[in-house]
């Protein structure tokens, strides 16, 4: 009995990997920066310190997405 193919993926499935890898860090950055803005709006006087801390956190979250980008080139 023949099966009917409705959808087919050709080529390398790894190419969708970066899309998946960007989802988590995207959500993370949204929460991180949103919360920082919230904190700045509540207490503008500590905004300098909040911004510094935010950038340190952003750097850690962002590197996950970048690892996704690099592995796309490494493991093909």
């Amino acid at each position: 009995m023949d099966t009917t193919t409705l959808a087919e993926v050709s080529g390398n499935v790894a190419t969708i990997g970066y899309g998946l890898a960007a989802v988590g860090p995207g959500i993370g950055l949204g929460i991180l920066i949103g919360k920082t803005i919230e904190g700045m709006a509540r207490q503008p006087e500590v905004s300098g310190q909040l911004r510094t801390t935010m950038f340190i956190g952003v750097a850690f979250v962002e590197v996950l997405a970048l690892l996704g980008l690099i592995t796309g080139f490494l493991f093909t």
Binding site: A59, F60, E62, V63, L66, L67, L69, I70
Partner: peptide, 13 residues
């Protein structure tokens, strides 16, 4: 490692 990778990967992208 992340210091180096972050900079290089950003520029590559």
């Amino acid at each position: 490692a992340t210091l180096a990778l972050r900079l290089a990967a950003n520029m590559i992208a």
